[in-house]
Write a protein that binds this DNA or RNA. Structure first.
Length: 426
RNA sequence: GCGGGGUUAGUUCAGUGGUAGAACACCGGACUGUGGCUCCGGUUGCCGAGGGUUCGAAUCCCUCACCCCGCCCCA
C-alpha cells in the first residue's frame, strides 16, 4: 500500500472545516488592518534561503529539501532549488522583484505550506502550514515605527481571541541591532567560559556552538548560573531601547498583556529589535504557536532598498491542534436528505434538489431503489436536519412529506414553500 | 543524527509457545412508505516485513520498515 510519506499527512473532514474556519478568521482580521494576500512559489532558488535565513542555521544546514534542477534551458541546468522552509524570504524577494513599495503595498499576508526535512513529532511535520504576515516598506510608510510593532502584536491578540484561544501568553524581547548583538555575543561567550564546565553537557556544547541557546536550558542545577549571565537587554543601544520602550507603551495603552522575556532569542539571522512569541499551554514540547519579529536589514541583504519590516508566522498545524475539540461543530451538516421513493423519483428528486440548492440549502440525495428505511438511516447517520420524501403520492399532490429528524415531527409542505420551511428551522 | 514506546478486524484494544478474540463500527433481518432505542444474525484479518529457534510462533531471538513521544534545533 502506498502511504503518505513520512512527516506529511492528509487533512480530512471534519478537520478541514476547522482549517477553513481558522483561515477565514485570519483573512478577516488581517483585512481590518489593511493587510493584503500574497502567494509566492513554494520553491525558490536555494540562495534566497541561505542568504536570508542564515547559512549556519539548522534550517539551512540540514533541514531543507534541496535539489538540482534539470531544466531544458541552459540557464536552468544545475540550478539549485529548495522547497521553501519559511515564507518571509519569499515575500521579501517578491517585494524587491516587483518594487512593491512603488505601489504602496507594504502590508502582506500569506497562508500556505512550508517544508522542512526534520524528524516529525507532535505538532511538527515535514509539510506544515503557516499563516503569516509581513509589514515592510520604506520608513516613510511607517515600517520602522514602534507603532507598527504594536499594531502587529495587537492584531495577533485579536485573532487569537477571535478563535476562542484565551489562555495565551505574549513573550516579548528586543534582540537589538546587529552591532548590539555582536557585542553581546562576545560578552556572553566570555561570561560562559569560566562557568561552562559546571553546566550540563548540552550547555557545554551550546557555550561553544550557539551561546544564546544556553537560555533554553531546563536543567534545574544550571539555572543559578544562567541567572548570572549578561542579558541582551543590557546591551541595547539608545535607539533600540527607545524603540522597545515605545512598543511596550502602546501595547499597555491598547490593553494587550505581555511578559518581558530577555531569554527569548530568535534562531534566524535576519531578526533585529523586537522579537516575540505567543505560547499556549497543553501543547507538549512545542508550546509556541506563533513567533516573529523585526528584520530591518533583510531587504538590503537580499539586494533590495532599505525597507525595515516586522512579521510573524503562525504554526497552523499547532493552532488547529489546540482547537481540535470544536472540529465537529464547525462542519456544516446537510439541511435535508431527499429520499426518492420508487421508479422515476430520481428525476423528480434531482429537480427538487436543484431548486433547494439554489436557495442555499445543503442537500444530500438518496436513490430511488433504496428502501425508505435505508434512506432514513442514511439521513440520520450523516446528521441531516430533515428528511424529505419524494414519492408518487407527493408528486401527485404537489406537496411533500418533510420530517424533522430531531423532533420526529412530520408535515406536508407544498413545493413552493419547501426552501423557506427548511431554512426557517435552522 | 540520538533516546524511549509501539505495530493484531474499518476503529480502540485483549491475547506471552498449542484452533486468532472483544467492544464499537459496518451489512442484513425483526419492520415491503419512516431513522435514532431494542432484539436476532452476519462480514471483517498475509497478527507490519524478512529471517531464525521449535513438532508447533501473533507470542521467543535477530534484522529492517513504519507510527508515536521526546532530545538536538526551531516558525
Amino acid at each position: 500500500m502506498i502511504k503518505a510519506i513520512r512527516g506529511t499527512r492528509d487533512l480530512l473532514p471534519p478537520d478541514t472545516a476547522l482549517w477553513n474556519f481558522v483561515e477565514a478568521a485570519a483573512r478577516d482580521v488581517f483585512r481590518a488592518y489593511n493587510f493584503h494576500e500574497i502567494r509566492t512559489p513554494i520553491f525558490e532558488e536555494t540562495q534566497l534561503f541561505s542568504r536570508s535565513v542564515g547559512e549556519d542555521t539548522d534550517i539551512v544546514s540540514k533541514e531543507m529539501y534541496t535539489w538540482e534542477d534539470r531544466g531544458r534551458a541552459q540557464s536552468e541546468k544545475g540550478q539549485s532549488i529548495t522547497l521553501r522552509p519559511e515564507n518571509t524570504a519569499g515575500v521579501v524577494r517578491a517585494y524587491i522583484e516587483h518594487k512593491l513599495w512603488e505601489r504602496g503595498l507594504n502590508k502582506l499576508y500569506y497562508i500556505g505550506p512550508q517544508f522542512r526535512r526534520e524528524r516529525p513529532q507532535k505538532g511538527r511535520y515535514r509539510q506544515f502550514f503557516q499563516i503569516g504576515a509581513e509589514a515592510i516598506g520604506p520608513p516613510t510608510a511607517g515600517s520602522e515605527s514602534p507603532a507598527r510593532d504594536a499594531e502587529v502584536l495587537e492584531m495577533l491578540a485579536t485573532l487569537l481571541d477571535r478563535l476562542g484561544i484565551t489562555d495565551w501568553t505574549l513573550e516579548l524581547n528586543s534582540v537589538g541591532c546587529p552591532n548590539d548583538r555582536a557585542t553581546y555575543n562576545e560578552a556572553l561567550k566570555n561570561a560562559l567560559k569560566p562557568v561552562a564546565a559546571k553546566m550540563c553537557a548540552d550547555c557545554q556544547r551550546r557555550a561553544v556552538t550557539n551561546p544564546l541557546r544556553v537560555f533554553d536550558c531546563k536543567v534545574p542545577e544550571d539555572q543559578p548560573i544562567i541567572e548570572t549571565l549578561p542579558r541582551i537587554s543590557q546591551y541595547l543601544d539608545e535607539p533600540c531601547r527607545r524603540h522597545f520602550d515605545a512598543v511596550q507603551g502602546i501595547l499597555t495603552a491598547v490593553g494587550v498583556p505581555f511578559t518581558l522575556n530577555d531569554r527569548l532569542v530568535r534562531g534566524l539571522d535576519y531578526y533585529t529589535r523586537t522579537a516575540f512569541e505567543f505560547t499556549h499551554g497543553a501543547l507538549g514540547a512545542q508550546n509556541a504557536i506563533l513567533g516573529g519579529g523585526r528584520y530591518d536589514g533583510l531587504s538590503e541583504s537580499l539586494g533590495g532598498p532599505h525597507a525595515p519590516g516586522i512579521g510573524f508566522a503562525i504554526g497552523e498545524d499547532r493552532l488547529v491542534m489546540s482547537l481540535k475539540e470544536s472540529a465537529d461543530a464547525v462542519a456544516r451538516k446537510p439541511d435535508v436528505y431527499i429520499a426518492p421513493l420508487g421508479p422515476g423519483m430520481d428525476r423528480e428528486s434531482a429537480r427538487l434538489a436543484r431548486e433547494l440548492r439554489r436557495h442555499d440549502v445543503v442537500v444530500e440525495l438518496g436513490d430511488e431503489t433504496f428502501r425508505l428505511k435505508k434512506s432514513f438511516e442514511n439521513a440520520s447517520k450523516m446528521g441531516a436536519r430533515f428528511a424529505l420524501i419524494v414519492g408518487e403520492n407527493e408528486v401527485k399532490a404537489g406537496a411533500f412529506a418533510l420530517k424533522n429528524l430531531e423532533s420526529g415531527e412530520q408535515i406536508s409542505v407544498p413545493r413552493a414553500e419547501l426552501a423557506a420551511k427548511i431554512q426557517s428551522a435552522s
